[in-house]
Design a binder for these strands. Structure first.
Lengths: 206, 206
DNA sequence: ACATCTAGACGACGGCTGTCGTTTTATAGA
DNA sequence: TCTATAAAACGACAGCCGTCGTCTAGATGT
């Protein structure tokens, strides 16, 4: 019976969900996700276990909401928006992604241990990235006939995959360099929808 | 205590794992993944429940192995290999990905209902695509200094994301057209490592 | 201030999970 | 062929899951 998570009016609901998300974050500082039980979460949140299921289908749904919310928060704090195919905007999204991964691994501790449910986190972040990109790339098939949906999908998955690859193989190169590489890789993809002129110029620059 | 899944000598182990994977496939023809219990699987496979845990950590690990194995089988049946940055090779991988999704949805029924654990399937397929691409793109950082790992990661995630986008929004365009679009999108990414000449020619072709 | 609505508390339920130790069975190698 | 190895069967266990129905309390809106 969980209600849609974005834009909840009732302050009680917000409070309870805040408590649950906080409890999960707290617990994941020491345990890995699959070692945390719903019982643990509700005990820490001082909330009845049955109440949990009034808000989320299972602990995976809670994780999903937490990740999506956290990433969205990080984006809005920096006022990161992807408007059009501007490469610097793409870089901002890429940087935000890597920062979020770092933040999760360290002080938030969302994925302290490499859990078997990492793919769930992956999916949540990819969706979040997709949402940002979609704001800048109209989904309607315009004169180009390419369909922005596919570009957004390809780009958001690619960005996350590349950043995660860099992240998992730590110490390969500094963040700046990684962002630059991924941006260069993404520019031709993102510019496939429109405004290709400036892109090609930038792409062929040293 | 599960033993590594690839290259198992003992025929008994192969037999049992075959039975378990077959049982899960069978059950997912009617139920969604999260509606299937380990009990169901072992009952259908006529195998003791405890035996299941000798082979897989949980039912998610079984799904993962099943998807990876199935995709690898589909690729080797067609002798699909990605050697170098040849666009037709990329197209073959893309087509194989969409075919695998179709095959899963219809007659194999791996993801009949849209389950909350779809991300796990996603991750398994992305990893499988990555393995194929990695054969054609050397991971060592050569004179280009780009590092093939990032390209492989970006490309495999992007390919799967794009194909899945097309797949989820069914009826948008025929398969051929989708493959062509995604290939065009991926060529600049894949060719970032080396052999960029032919690529650029193809990219600017009508 | 009041009546109403509804989130949340609570206890209980059957079912599934993951693990353990022991026993049986069949493969692999000498 | 015979023996050592190891996979699988089996039963049992505590613990967690997801759900249900009922009841309380507090927020909402008039």
């Amino acid at each position: 019976m969980p209600i849609s998570d974005c834009e909840v009016r009732d302050p009680r609901i917000r409070r309870t969900r805040q408590l649950l998300q906080g409890a999960l974050q707290e617990l994941m500082r020491t345990k890995s996700f699959d070692e945390v039980s719903v019982q643990d979460i509700t005990d820490t949140a001082t909330v009845n276990r049955a109440t949990f299921y009034d808000h989320y289908n299972d602990k995976f749904a809670l994780l999903d909401a937490m990740v999506a919310g956290g990433f969205h928060k990080l984006l809005s704090e920096r006022a990161v928006r992807y408007d059009g195919s501007c490469p610097s905007a793409a870089s901002a999204v890429i940087l935000a992604t890597s920062d979020y991964l770092l933040q999760m691994a360290s002080h938030e501790g969302v994925c302290q241990k490499q859990s078997a449910f990492q793919p769930l986190v992956d999916g949540a972040i990819v969706r979040a990235i997709g949402r940002v990109l979609a704001e800048g790339i109209p989904g309607n098939e315009d004169e180009t006939g390419l369909g922005g949906g596919m570009i957004v999908a390809a780009a958001s998955w690619a960005i996350y995959g590349a950043v995660k690859e860099w992240f998992d193989a730590q110490g390969r190169c500094p963040v700046n360099e990684m962002v630059e590489r991924v941006t260069k890789l993404m520019v031709p993809v993102l510019s496939a929808g429109g405004a290709p002129e400036e892109m090609h110029a930038l792409q062929s620059a040293p």
